[in-house]
C-alpha cells in the first residue's frame, strides 16, 4: 500500500497531511507539558522526571516523531521541486486571489522550523548551548529544568530567537491545518470557510501559548 501511496499525487499529499497532523498533535502536547513551568520547579521538574521515567516508551515516542518529521520533510522538499518543475515560466504579472503568504512559503517556513528544532534540541535536550545552567540538580535530586529554562529566557537574544521561530510556526500551521483537513477529505461547503478561519486561529492560540513562556520569564513574572 505504501508503494501505491508514494507514486500517487493524492497519496503523497496524504503522507504530508498525516505526518503534519501528528506533528501538530505533538506541538499541542508539548505546549501543555511546558505550561507546567508556571507551577515553578515543583511543576516542570516533576513533569520532566516523569517523562524520563517512561524509559523505552519515551524513545518509542521520540522515534515516532522523528519518523514523522523525516517523511514530512522529505516529501515536502520532493513535492516542492516537482511543483516548481510543473510551472517553469512565471507570469510577468501575477495577482494572488486565494493563496496566502503562508501557503506560498510552506517550504521556507518548514525549513526554518527545521533549523529552529535543531537549535531547540541543542538548547534544551542536549543542553550544549548554556551548559553552565543546563545541567543542575534541584534539592529533590531531579534535573533542574526550571532553572535551565528561566536562566535561558532571561537572555534577550534567546527570547528573540524563540519569538521569531513562533512567528514562522504561525504561518506554517496557519496553512497546514486547513490544508490537512482538506486532504483527508473532511471538507464540504460549510466546513471550507470554517476551517479556513479556524486554521490561523489554532496557529495563533498555539503561538501565543508558546511565546507566553519566554515573555513571562523575561518580564520576571515566573518565580520559583
Amino acid at each position: 500500500m505504501f508503494a501505491k501511496l508514494f507514486k500517487n499525487s493524492v497519496g503523497r499529499k496524504l503522507i504530508m497531511a498525516a505526518t503534519g497532523l501528528g506533528m501538530i498533535g505533538f506541538v499541542v502536547m508539548h505546549l501543555l507539558g511546558n505550561f507546567s513551568i508556571f507551577l515553578g520547579p515543583e511543576g516542570i521538574n516533576v513533569y520532566a522526571a516523569r517523562l524520563q521515567s517512561l524509559g523505552p516508551l519515551l524513545w518509542v515516542a521520540r522515534l515516532g516523531i522523528l519518523a514523522m518529521a523525516a517523511f514530512h520533510i522529505t516529501f515536502g522538499i520532493w513535492l516542492t521541486l516537482e511543483n516548481r518543475r510543473a510551472k517553469p515560466e512565471a507570469y510577468a504579472v501575477r495577482k494572488r486571489q486565494a493563496s496566502t503568504f503562508g501557503s506560498e512559503t510552506m517550504i521556507y517556513s518548514g525549513l526554518l522550523l527545521l533549523t529552529f528544532v535543531v537549535f531547540h534540541l541543542l538548547h534544551f535536550t542536549l543542553r550544549v548551548i548554556f551548559p553552565e545552567t543546563s545541567n543542575l540538580i534541584d534539592s529533590a535530586g531531579r534535573a533542574d529544568v526550571f532553572t535551565m529554562v528561566t536562566e535561558s529566557f532571561r537572555k534577550f537574544p534567546v527570547v528573540v530567537i524563540y519569538l521569531a521561530a513562533m512567528a514562522v510556526l504561525f504561518f506554517h500551521v496557519g496553512h497546514g491545518f486547513k490544508s490537512l483537513v482538506q486532504t483527508i477529505g473532511l471538507n464540504n461547503d460549510k466546513t471550507l470557510p470554517l476551517f479556513g478561519k479556524a486554521s490561523p486561529l489554532l496557529a495563533l492560540v498555539l503561538v501565543l501559548g508558546y511565546i507566553s513562556i519566554p515573555m513571562l520569564i523575561l518580564f520576571g513574572l515566573v518565580k520559583g
Partner: peptide, 23 residues
C-alpha cells in the same frame, strides 16, 4: 504538479467549481 491547497484554482474558475470537489 501536485495540489497543495492554495485554492487559486477555485478563485480563477469561470464556472465557480468549488475545491470541495478536491476534498
Amino acid at each position: 504538479g501536485n495540489c497543495s491547497n492554495h485554492y487559486e484554482c477555485e478563485a480563477a474558475c469561470p464556472k465557480g467549481i468549488s475545491v470541495k470537489f478536491i476534498a
